[in-house]
Design a protein around this nucleic acid. Sequence first.
DNA 1: TGGGACCCGTAC
DNA 2: GACGTACGGGTCCCAC
Length: 903
Amino acid sequence: MTEKKPTLYLIDASSYMYRAFYAMRQRLTAPDGTPTQAVYGFHQMLQKVLKDKRPERICVVYDPPGPTLRHAIYPDYKATRERMPEDLVVQVPLIKRMVDLLGIPSVEITGYEADDVIAALARKAVEAGMPVVIVSGDKDLHQLVREPHVIQWDPQRDEVFTGETVERKLGVRPEQVRDLLALMGDSSDNIPGVAGVGLKTAQNLLRQFGSLDQVLSRVEDIQSPALRKKIEEGKEAALLSRDLVTVREDAPVALEPDQCVVRPADTKALVEFFQSLGFRRFLDELAREAGDQALAAATEAPERRDRLVTDEKGLSLVLARIAEADVLSIDLETTSQDAMRADLVGVALCWKDHEAAYIPVGHTGEDAGQQIPPARTLDALRPLLEGDRPKKVGQNIKYEWVVLKRHGVELQGIDFDTMVASYLLDPGNPSHRLERIVAEHLGESKLRYSDVAGSGRNQIPFAQVPLEKAVDYACSDAETTYRLVPVLREKLQEAGLLDLMESLERPLIPVLARMEHKGIRIDAARLQELSKTLEEGLRKEEEVIHQIAGGPFNIQSPIQLRDVLFGKLQLPVIKKTKTGPSTDMSVLEELAALHPIAEHIVAYRSLAKLKNTYVDTLPKLIHPETGRIHTSYNQAVTATGRLSSSDPNLQNIPIRTEEGRRIREAFVPEEGCVLLAADYSQIELRIFAHYSGDERLVAAFSEGADIHRRTAAEMFGVPPHEVTPEMRRQAKTINFGIIYGMGPYGLAKQLRINQASAKAAIDRYFATYQGVKRWIEQVVEESRKRGYAETLLGRRRYLPELKSRNRNVRQQGERLAVNTTIQGTAADLIKKAMIDIDAAIRQEGLRTAMLLQVHDELVFEVPEDELDRVRTLVKDLMENVHPLSVPLVVDMGWGANWAEAHG
DNA sequence: TGGGACCCGTAC
DNA sequence: GACGTACGGGTCCCAC
């Protein structure tokens, strides 16, 4: 009879250091400024292992500094990998100290990577009859999995890798993993693999032959001649790659598995350690654990209690529970991502930690059974949804607002949006999806949509998801959102962003929702006419181009176009893209002097762009019920704080060319209304003047001067009335260039002058506006010190580039610091104006509707009898949105279409 | 057939 | 390498 041995947990430290470091884009720092996010993340991972598994045997395995055996075999090993970022380097000793203080054994062996040490320890453990769990998410370690003795577990994603799951993920058994990697290579470690063989091919080969050795010795059995050639030529690389990816078991580890015992933590030192790093939450946890064990057990999180509501009795029970709640998290399940086209499938609600309900109203699956009809459900919920209490929270709750509005419910009392909060905390992060937010801020993994509805071709509509799974998914979304709210609110508070959230971004949500829901009317007939005209023009241009080229080709194909221009016609290459000679506008303009085809291609491109992108697309997007076009405004996309618009993007409708303006003529008001356009004049330059306090710039704006003319006059030292159009054009280009941080090179290209003249012009500009130069230097320095750029209303954008040792990256950061401050402040101001105007419209009971926002412009649909009032109101609220040291000026126009409104 | 990379062009 | 912020259409290529 054998005694049952405790399981040994082997923790792959490096992968969690990196992951914690990069997962938290939000820079966590100790009071003394030391970056700490990797320490924080590492601790969370350790706690999850300790709490979930209560391991009796555990060891943290570090990668040693310096080269390893693999570098001896292959000098380029991991050569493409960037050096560990300085901000992470300083955290490594902190992590090691924390592990020691927690009483967790650890090991690091010079010349042997952590993977090899883990393999050696695992082998020892298995020989001693001890089960092993490798704690890592790394696919290289899949090769060590041997059920039942050795499995792999990633606590952060809560993924367990057994033989079966490895096979599902990689398509091969664990013992084949190294051969798989040897064939396909691994770019992150600079493992070559066989050229031209990717994951799929490697899988197929191993499925057919079983192992790399078999593949190589039976290469003549490979069906495809092309593949056979690749394998023959890649044989050496494959064998070298296998050497590199194979985890060795012979590392000289003195530590015995039985010695890997957790010692008592040094609580006193840990408290000091956490204090020095400013980890308040961990201190709280530590205090709780040090106190009453029974009490701690009682506060352990209970399982979520989900309720499936399919009848009136269940519904009234849930309503009664919610009536006592302060906060209600809402997540609608629907048939579409597009709020204007979505039908209700179900309503998920959470009003308390671990208490959530799902009310299916439109499931069609076989087990759908009895459901309360949507209308009845919404009527029952109406008092809750349309009242101020409970306070409503959600993830992108604007979506819920629009869907509910279309179902006759006007959501009130919006208190928090987790997507917007995550965005404010780090607008540079490309994703604010719930799944990612939950991973970052709760350190949990979430049930994914694909987990309940399948993925790819097998994906089914949510309405067909069996109720049992639907409840689980919908409630977990509503509940994680609910639990995120206090966490995110606290973080906003700590970062000084809560006020921006509560006074700007939150009140903006219903304003944007109303704009999206209202939509804008389109004159489809007008666009169809325009389409015919464009079609005609395209046909003519195409004919000419084909004739000049001496034969037909696809003008819209950059590759074919390249062949014609630089092959057939032997025109000079002006500029290159990653893949070959460029054919973009600036190139074609230069080529126009050499060959007539260039200008025809420009004309063709321009017509095709208008037709394909706007004229033929917009009519298709007219909503069948409203007859209007409904864009989506995204509040959590841009790095600077601007809104973006999509599906369709109504923020890039042409205006600069005559044909472009024809498209704006198709944006029309409702009968009895006019379109009113109000745009901030030179808002970004005015913000520049405000911030820099430059006397001349401020004076120019205060006097209401033509800013470009004035700039030209100052720069060229002539009176304003002697400024020539060319001088004004140059000054205008510089004025805009300054906002983007343009250098002599860029300005020279733009103005078609030489670089020396461009540099002289910039020098003259800064000599004229000395305050501007000083301010740019100052804002760069402050941003570098803080680590982020900050706008007028306190919005932040983190700029790690400012601390880069690479000059190009650093200069990029400097441009971003300047531009973000200016562009972001302009965004702050117009957002506030939108809120003020919306409030006034409602306050005064006007029928006017705000329809569009285009960064510095607002477009309204105004009943004719309200025009006078609305003109005054809008101008007044926009110009006085926030006091600056220069006046804000708003230009307005109105008319029977959007083009006229720009009169 | 669909997704992603790439090139290009529209807006502010 | 050199000018910031977006979205989207077309082509091409590859995986399914």
